[in-house]
């Protein structure tokens, strides 16, 4: 960066460390402090959209589950609009749905679970082509020096995924599959299983956004 242009350099990232839960999900650290925890419930009773559960693990380079990872999700509503002033699409806005959730992988099982609704399709950068429905993930933890951004796409959206402008910039079709979560049913609930591989043969595609 050219210092003569007066841009300020971004503050450097540091690992979230093993105790990230204290600040961001204190109930998982083992105590209650704030009256209003943020991000642990994403949908209300009246939130439109198909109820889904996204679950999975975050796996290290040896395939072992990482059991102390902060997992955050950002998504559009069921109509395909983000609850943010920069999204000016002419679609219904659901003010009760922020579209953001966070949780931690379980200290014992390594599983994370997010109950939300399936988002609609959002217009793509070029305007002509819609992006396939997806949710945006952001991970931080001990051993992760700078937060990792990725996306989860839905396994039952084959046609939309095939046309998705972001999946298609990934050169190797095999690697696109790391972002597509299979859909299943368990006890009447819709489950999307999204395991994130930090490294190894099946390393998940992470984005420099």
């Amino acid at each position: 960066m050219n210092g003569k242009l007066d841009y300020l350099p971004e503050t450097p990232s540091q690992t979230a460390g093993p105790y990230v839960h204290i600040g961001l999900i204190p109930q998982q650290a083992g105590f209650e402090i704030f009256e209003n925890p943020l991000g642990n419930v994403i949908t209300g009773r009246n939130t439109p959209g198909e109820r889904i559960c996204i679950e999975g693990r975050v796996l290290d380079g040896l395939g072992a589950p990482c059991r102390d990872v902060l997992v955050e999700l950002w998504q559009a509503n069921a109509a395909g609009r983000y609850n943010h002033p920069a999204d000016t699409q002419n679609k219904a806005l659901d003010h009760g749905f922020r579209g953001w959730a966070r949780t931690g992988t379980d200290f014992v099982t390594g599983l994370y679970t997010i109950r939300t609704i399936k988002p609609g399709s959002v217009v793509g950068r070029k305007g002509r082509k819609a992006m396939a429905p997806h949710v945006n993930f952001w991970l931080a933890s001990r051993g992760i020096n700078i937060g990792l951004a990725t996306r989860m796409y839905f396994g039952d959206e084959e046609a939309a995924n095939f046309d998705d402008p972001v999946l298609n910039i990934i050169e190797q079709p095999e690697r696109r599959k790391t972002l597509v979560a299979p859909r299943s049913e368990r006890d009447g609930a819709i489950i999307y299983t999204f395991d994130i591989h930090l490294q190894g043969d099946r390393e998940t595609v992470f984005f420099d956004v």
Partner: peptide, 23 residues
């Protein structure tokens, strides 16, 4: 960081609404 670091390059993504919006 050794076992928790991605080894492949990040895919560079020009911003869409998914990146410029946030909670």
């Amino acid at each position: 960081s050794v076992l928790r670091s991605p080894r492949l390059p990040l895919w560079s993504l020009q911003n869409s609404l998914s990146e410029v919006t946030g909670p």
